[in-house]
Design a protein around this nucleic acid. Sequence first.
DNA 1: CGTACCTTGACATGACTGTGGTAAGGTTCG
DNA 2: CGAACCTTACCACAGTCATGTCAAGGTACG
Lengths: 115, 115
Amino acid sequence: MEAYTVSQAAERTGWSPRMLRYLESTGLVIPERSASGYRRYGEPELELLRDLANLRRRFEVELDDVAFVVRLRREPQLRDAVERWLAGATVPAEGASEADWIAWEQRKHERLLVA
Amino acid sequence: MEAYTVSQAAERTGWSPRMLRYLESTGLVIPERSASGYRRYGEPELELLRDLANLRRRFEVELDDVAFVVRLRREPQLRDAVERWLAGATVPAEGASEADWIAWEQRKHERLLVA
DNA sequence: CGTACCTTGACATGACTGTGGTAAGGTTCG
DNA sequence: CGAACCTTACCACAGTCATGTCAAGGTACG
């Protein structure tokens, strides 16, 4: 069974040991622990770490951006709330005219498609 | 059709005019403009602004986080890359059962994010 | 025409992110 | 045993976020 220490994982992924510990603290990549408390990175974790570095480099994504997506996944209520916000789910007030609804629909598209 | 200036919109949403301009710069809530360049907020924008404030207060979400989700919407390649990363991020631990691995495979294809 | 808005741009600041150190102490292994 | 790792817990620092304020000039309207 392959398991690497924090320094070995760092060598193999391009991250520093310091950053590996930081990534764990943010919840992005959490390795197993040995009986005496040493971090043990397996091949799947190395892959995650490499992919994370690529993601950051290729798209200029911040770590906390990715961390937020992880959070979205763990908190369905939050995800739903964000989805509703994105969809502009809040509709015109009661008693709104037909014209209001049409304008809202048009703006909804406009908002979401802005370049 | 109702349209409010930045100060009027601020009064009605609890944001400051400064923040309304900031929110526009981040791409979160972009109002129309009058011929002479004044921002014009309609009722749908006010609603978006109120909901955004609620989102932040209720879930302690940063503007940055919401902006990133908007970005995911606009950049399908990025969204796909993040989804792929996430699918690996929850890989079962080492002693995982066969059932865990099957569930993980299924989750890979799950629709994780705002569609 | 004056006043009260609006515009952009700049400077300031506290909190947090990302990253590197360093210190004090525990673990592994030749 | 001793060297070379590991652990957590701090200090430091540039950069960004979120927010306010202020300045110089344009617009709306009684």
